[in-house]
Design a protein around this nucleic acid. Structure first.
Lengths: 142, 142
DNA sequence: TTACTATTTGATAATGGTTATTAATGAATC
DNA sequence: GATTCATTAATAACCATTATCAAATAGTAA
């Protein structure tokens, strides 16, 4: 979703397009590494020195309610935000915590087979796989 | 794991067997609904009126380090504790939040197919499916 | 452009779950 | 039973998130 689309989307919902809101939306909707609210805050401070953490949270909740992003709670209590609303596997390095999304047709097919086995109508899902990423493997082997 | 097994397990690890520790271990290892620390605290208070939340947390962390339970962070920031360390699907009601574990040979087979597609050596996983449970369905339809 | 209104923002305080601290307690060993 | 050291309970500290509210601002209409 580019800036133009975001502006139109907000306007359609009757929401005001402020520079802060636009910046936060653009930021999270383009990121693939599931940042925390704090990380978003730190990265936007350079360009928007007066931006507030409260605004970050409010905008993230807004995007969640509008179904443009999802929250992911992790085991240390931290909450990360993921703009990919389609079925995918969160590949999480158990050492450094880095995350990337894995999404293929084949995974979708296999997942559908699991869902049909469950015999319920799902309204959502979350799939995490922990592994050791290449960077961490290399550090350990040197 | 019954009381006798827990006592032996703790002793083997060189840990002291206190009544609080035993109660907390017995409680969480037999529960299937992934309670929070606070829920464990409230339920044990009847039998152990002086038990402290700090002790609950310390014992849960102990069990986690010993790989007898796993932590599950959720999207509202809450952390629940799950004594099932084998592969299973967390079936979560999107309305009331109740959880039950779904575990069959077929799900295991399908999941293994997904893992082989991913081309990594996994060290763990988490699979959540959100749906509307029967209780909540009935409430809505009346 | 200006004025008006309702939304949004930023600063701050409040909240609540988790962790740290520490003196007192109690399990294990002899 | 005495000794020792891990464990407990109570309390305070911590920190991420939420709530509050006056000031700022986007959108709209005059």
């Amino acid at each position: 979703m580019n800036t133009h689309n975001i502006i139109n989307f907000l306007r359609e919902k009757g929401l005001k397009v402020t520079s802060q809101r636009l910046a936060i939306c653009s930021f999270i909707l383009s990121r693939k590494d599931h940042p925390t609210a704090e990380q978003i805050f730190q990265e936007l401070r350079d360009e928007y020195p007066t931006i507030s953490l409260g605004t970050i949270y409010k905008t993230l909740h807004l995007l969640k309610d509008l179904r443009l992003i999802q929250e992911l709670g992790f085991n240390n209590g931290s909450i990360r935000y993921d703009p990919d609303m389609e079925l995918h596997v969160n590949m999480i390095c158990s050492k450094c915590g880095k995350i990337y999304d894995y999404k293929t047709k084949n995974v979708k097919n296999l997942w559908d087979a699991i869902l049909s086995e469950l015999n319920v109508k799902p309204v959502g899902q979350r799939i995490d796989v922990y592994y050791e990423c290449d960077d961490c493997k290399n550090i350990n082997s040197t």
